[in-house]
């Protein structure tokens, strides 16, 4: 199963990068969302996978009795998901605003910050 996780991460990265380079604002946002999913999954899988064993301690015990899932990457992924969410929402707001003021969703035509040289 490990390898299938890795495969998913790879495909998410490939699609994400391809969408971000498309030059259209909306597709760029899709790409960004895929990228953040890829990152989360990559962190999760690199902590090792263990099927169906949540990192819980039974009542009255001091430590898990049987081997459980690696808790550390889970904690990191939780943080990453929330941060990625914040980033996506901000990017959405920025995109909306950029489209409103630039009048185009084509990223290469957004030239207010770096105006086209005389050509």
């Amino acid at each position: 199963m490990d390898f299938l996780f890795v495969l998913i991460v790879g495909l998410l990265v490939t699609s994400g990068a391809y969408l971000m380079m498309s030059g259209h604002l909306v597709r760029f946002l899709y790409g960004l969302a895929l990228f953040s999913n890829a990152a989360n999954l990559a962190i999760f899988v690199s902590g090792g996978l263990s099927y169906g064993a949540p990192a819980l301690i039974a009542e009255g015990e001091k430590a898990p009795l049987e081997p459980v899932a690696n808790a550390l990457p889970q904690a990191l992924v939780l943080t990453a998901i929330v941060i990625g969410f914040g980033l996506t929402v901000f990017a959405l707001a920025l995109a909306k605003r950029a489209f409103a003021s630039e009048g185009t969703a084509l990223m290469d035509d957004m030239r207010s910050a770096e105006p086209r040289a005389e050509d």
């Binding site: 996978l49 263990s50 099927y51 169906g52 899932a69 889970q74 998901i81 990625g84 969410f85 996506t88």
Partner: peptide
Amino acid sequence: MYGAIDVAMTQLLVEILV
């Protein structure tokens, strides 16, 4: 499936919001 219940819940909520 891989024992990350809290992560899954967060992921689902965030996904809905996204």
